[in-house]
């Protein structure tokens, strides 16, 4: 049977565009149907995850970071390797201190934490790709969250009157402002985990957190943001975190409902190798429903 007996060639020549559109829709339907059948097969299986986890465990060293790309796969990553991801690592300030990073990737995604690294190990496990990156790690000379007990905390009222806060077993307590303690806590900031020093700022005074004799490196990394999605929705105020080194202001971070986790790196290279006082001053224009979390590291 000849094709011309089935199809009207004249009609085809006269209405090429219309036929092309109609044929395009039919082709789209076939592609979409095939994709609907095949796409589920592209998803990583439990077997893929187990095989990959075994390889990570074999090569894992303390201080390594394991990340998922895309980030939405993180719960599955933690189900298989969560014992290698302690809370302090999951709630990190950033990834600068990690020199070895295991990236578990699917669908060609790349984790932002691996920027600047080079691949030293790579393997495929079904739909998952495992890559180990290495790069020079930042040397942390002082972790302000881990060393929170070394701080001196006080409140400075609008009239300049200073009242000190005392250190309790798990927090700093300020007698004139009960329930506004300062303590390290795992927080939700910008819907991500951050192990940070947390406090409820007060509108009538400045909260001062001062660390004496901090061994400084080339930079001072400070991250800050507001905790808890419900509080961010309920409040409107902006919290200001002022950073001073040796009584000189290096900069400030403004934390509002929409600012997320703000990470700033202040250049302290002129003070590298020296010990200096680092002071954080916290004020707020409207304290209602504001819980600030901040973390900082002095790094080389």
């Amino acid at each position: 049977m000849r094709l011309s007996s089935l199809l009207d060639a004249d009609s085809f020549r006269r209405h090429r565009l219309a036929y092309a559109c109609a044929a395009g829709i039919v082709v789209l339907a076939l592609i979409e149907t095939a994709n609907a059948w095949l796409a589920p097969l592209r998803a990583p299986t439990d077997r893929d995850w187990r095989a990959l986890a075994a390889e990570v465990r074999a090569g894992f060293q303390p201080g390594d970071l394991i990340v998922a790309a895309p980030a939405w796969a993180d719960p599955l990553l933690r189900m298989h390797l969560g014992d290698l991801i302690p809370i302090a690592v999951a709630g990190r300030l950033d990834a600068a201190r990690f020199g070895r990073i295991w990236e578990i990737s699917q669908r060609g995604a790349r984790a932002g934490e691996t920027a600047g690294g080079h691949i030293v190990q790579s393997s495929r496990h079904g739909a998952l790709t495992l890559r180990r990156y290495e790069r020079p790690a930042a040397r942390v000379s002082f972790d302000f969250v881990a060393e929170w007990r070394r701080a001196a905390v006080s409140r400075v009222a609008a009239d300049g009157q200073v009242s000190g806060c005392f250190r309790a077993p798990g927090s700093f307590e300020c007698p004139e402002l009960p329930a506004r303690s300062l303590k390290p806590e795992l927080l939700e900031i910008d819907t991500s985990p951050h192990l940070a020093l947390t406090m409820l700022p007060t509108g009538q005074s400045t909260t001062v957190i001062e660390f004496d004799r901090v061994p400084l490196g080339r930079e001072l990394a400070v991250g800050a943001g507001l905790h808890n999605v419900w509080l961010r929705k309920a409040g409107k105020g902006t919290v200001s975190l002022r950073v001073l080194v040796q009584s000189r202001e290096f900069g400030r971070i403004e934390a509002g409902s929409m600012t997320g986790w703000t990470l700033r790196k202040f250049d302290t290279s002129t003070l590298a190798g020296q010990s200096a006082s680092v002071r954080f001053e916290i004020t707020v224009d409207d304290p209602n429903s504001r819980t600030l979390g901040f973390a900082a590291e002095a790094r080389s």
């Binding site: 796969a73 719960p75 599955l76 189900m79 809370i87 709630g91 795992l186």
Partner: peptide
């Protein structure tokens, strides 16, 4: 999730329900 990490002192879920690999 973070409240569970804090309370149970682990970041590791015991089970995850995922559809096509998406939790």
């Amino acid at each position: 999730e973070y409240l569970h990490w804090d309370a149970y002192q682990t970041t590791r879920p015991a089970q995850v329900y995922a559809h096509e690999g998406v939790p």
